[in-house]
Amino acid sequence: MNFELPQFIAPNFNQDFLIDAPNCTTIEVIKEGVAPKNYHAMSIYPEYFKINGNWVLPVESRMDCVPVVVTNNKIEVVEFRNLNIGDKVVVGRTEDASEGIYVYTKGFKSKSKNKDTFAFRSRRSRETAFSKDYDELYEILKYDREHGHIVWVLGPAVVFDYDTRKALSLLIEKGYVHAIMAGNAMATHDLEAGLLGTALGQNIYTQESIPMGHYNHLDLINEARRAGSLENLIAEGNIKDGVVRTCIENTIPLILAGSIRDDGPLPPVIANVYKAQDAMRTQARKATTVICLATTLHTIATGNMTPSYTIRDNKVRPVYIYNVDISEFATNKLGDRGSLEVKTIVANVQDFMVHLKNNLISL
């Protein structure tokens, strides 16, 4: 099967309502970090802005941020906190081109023509059939390994299991991971497993709790802080395997965002929440596929940073977002926050990872 990206069908700008639409209106920022009244807030969809008679699509977008006109053919999408005095913010809250703002939701047409008003199992849940989703994901990952930027968002459950750590490490080695975003816990317990064979003091294979094992993750953090960096810790040769070691050995960006509940934390954990957000958005801007595993808060944060489209090689293409969790609450939560384009899979993340490894890597 040869995977092909769906073709983006741009708006027909020869339609009267787009031809007759006015140029968008901008108001300059007069106070640092504060948008003018009636600012326009972005959605996850492609949005066009009319400037000097031409419709302009921002190259990089983000929900809940504001469009700033930089030149006649360039618009940057900026967080409120990053607004500077003099920035020209687009104002207007209509989406139908009547104010020079056109939100376009039909660029990637659905293949499904069967849209009955009533149907059983129309929402995705533990009763959903996921075989087709897995097959599609395999093809997307094969394509984006060479042509895209695959970002993984990980909760600590991913590294609590022997087979899962091995599967993800192999996927990193084989080029299916271009960046990982997580918290202190994921990296800590992965390194604990690499050093001591446990996660939170429990053997990652036998599930046996080790005597005084509740010290293990603290001992690991202390060792990492003594070494001064994860690179130094890995270089000492005591971390036998794992996701973090494989990332470092393959120069894969590992973005660790801090939390109020963190132990330690590990040396590279970003304590300032906005610096962490900036580091995460660097990866979200480049993302073509995002896979979120068993981490509700990091998933919502990443989903809010990631639009439904990106532009690669001057072509508009979809950004695929997958949210995998054993909890239906967690999988539904991202949709409740406005990221409607996400594909959810209700599954144990350990099983999910092993499926991916078995179907993408021939050992």
Rank of each mutant, 00 (worst) to 15 (best):
V103L: 12
P36N: 15
I101L: 03
E79M: 14
S339T: 12
R337A: 14
I255S: 05
N54C: 09
L340A: 12
N304M: 15
A10S: 15
L168D: 04
A129F: 08
V89C: 07
K315L: 10
A330R: 11
I345C: 07
T26A: 11
N203R: 00
T26I: 14
P265W: 00
E139K: 13
V103Q: 11
T188H: 09
G175T: 08
N72L: 03
P156M: 07
D16S: 15
L171D: 02
A182K: 05
Y102K: 00
A10G: 12
S98A: 12
H217L: 03
G183V: 11
A179G: 11
Q7Y: 10
R121W: 01
I252V: 14
T306P: 05
A227W: 07
I75M: 02
T246L: 02
A187C: 13
P318R: 06
G194Y: 05
D219S: 08
P22S: 08
N232Y: 02
E47H: 11
E328Y: 01
G258S: 09
K286M: 13
A97H: 06
D20G: 07
V269N: 01
L5S: 08
D190H: 13
Q283I: 00
A276Y: 03
I260R: 05
T331S: 04
A167E: 04
G258F: 04
T26N: 04
E60H: 14
N216P: 01
S259D: 13
P307T: 14
K74W: 09
D144N: 15
Q277D: 07
I270A: 02
V243M: 10
F118R: 12
E76F: 07
A21M: 13
A279I: 01
V158R: 03
N304A: 04
V269I: 04
T296V: 12
A179L: 13
G148R: 05
N84G: 10
T310E: 06
D325G: 00
N348F: 01
L83C: 02
V158W: 00
G183N: 13
R285H: 06
D116C: 09
T25D: 12
D144G: 02
V316A: 04
A199S: 15
M1L: 05
V59D: 15
Q277T: 07
P36Y: 10
V89F: 02
G258N: 05
V153A: 05
F17N: 10
L233Y: 03
I270D: 00
K357G: 04
Y320C: 03
I44S: 11
S98W: 01
Y176E: 04
R145V: 05
E76T: 07
D190S: 12
V77I: 15
M1C: 08
Q15K: 14
G92D: 04
L191F: 01
I180E: 12
G237K: 10
I204F: 01
F160A: 06
W55F: 04
P67C: 05
V290C: 10
V89P: 06
T117K: 15
A10D: 15
N12W: 06
P11W: 07
A199M: 01
F3R: 09
A271E: 08
V89M: 05
E139P: 06
N250T: 10
N314F: 06
S327K: 09
D20T: 12
A294C: 11
K333S: 13
